[in-house]
């Protein structure tokens, strides 16, 4: 019941932020309508960081306790973080192509984001094809490593001066002058992170049921 109520609230909130982004927020002066990607691109990054934090905790928890609940959380966090990291990367490339004329440049923020995405991709491939007896331990190790890229991505923007980078620092440098834009960013960040929590919860429940079914299978064979 709690899960269904939360799903309903998040669905309504998503509809609300779509209304806000498309019908309330004004067009940005220099980039036009494409700037509205910002209201999904940045919150998707936040959602990916949140899921990676869960992956970090689950990895440490599994290595310390060998508890299958932590393995289920690892599975869930690996997939959800990869989903939102993909959304962040691909929307960023589309926006970059429209704003800079090229989808990707070799600068710290973009390279570190790509590294994070590649680690998450390899984690999910490992999960799909790895040796089942050692999978939880290997997932924990690679998951912890993937989670450690979050501070690298966040602080990479400081490595070079702003004029040497194409990726902007909108929030840190006092962008979003219009209050409607600031509100839109706040609401979309909140809702996308809530969506991330919902998907983490859903996938965790499915993983726990899968573990129970595996146990039943083993018992019925014996």
């Amino acid at each position: 019941m709690k899960f269904l109520s939360f799903s309903l609230v998040v669905s309504i909130a998503v509809a609300f932020i779509l209304y806000w982004i498309f019908l309330v927020v004004p067009d940005e002066r220099t980039m036009g309508a494409v700037q509205r990607i910002f209201y999904f691109h940045v919150p998707s990054a936040f959602a990916a960081y949140l899921a990676l934090t869960a992956l970090f905790v689950a990895g440490l928890g599994y290595l310390a306790t060998n508890n299958r609940a932590f393995d289920a959380l690892q599975i869930s966090a690996a997939e959800v973080s990869f989903l939102f990291a993909s959304i962040m990367l691909f929307t960023g490339m589309i926006w970059g192509n429209a704003a800079w004329g090229k989808p990707f440049t070799f600068e710290p923020r973009l390279i570190s984001s790509l590294l994070m995405w590649l680690l998450l991709f390899s984690l999910n491939v490992l999960r799909a094809f790895g040796d089942s007896s050692k999978l939880p331990t290997h997932t924990a190790a690679l998951g912890i490593l993937s989670a450690l890229t979050v501070p690298v991505v966040v602080y990479s923007i400081k490595l070079l001066p702003q004029f040497q980078q194409l990726h902007p620092q909108v929030v840190q440098r006092g962008g979003l002058v219009d209050p409607l834009m600031r509100q839109g960013f706040f609401y979309s960040s909140l809702v996308i992170m809530a969506l991330s929590v919902l998907l983490l919860w859903l996938r965790y429940r499915i993983a726990r049921i899968e573990q129970s079914v595996q146990m039943l299978e083993r018992q019925s064979v014996v």
């Binding site: 980039m31 036009g32 309508a33 494409v34 990607i37 589309i94």
Partner: peptide, 11 residues
């Protein structure tokens, strides 16, 4: 501002 709705749609 430029018309960039196509990029917005794809994103």
């Amino acid at each position: 501002p430029p018309d960039t709705y196509q990029a917005l749609f794809w994103a």
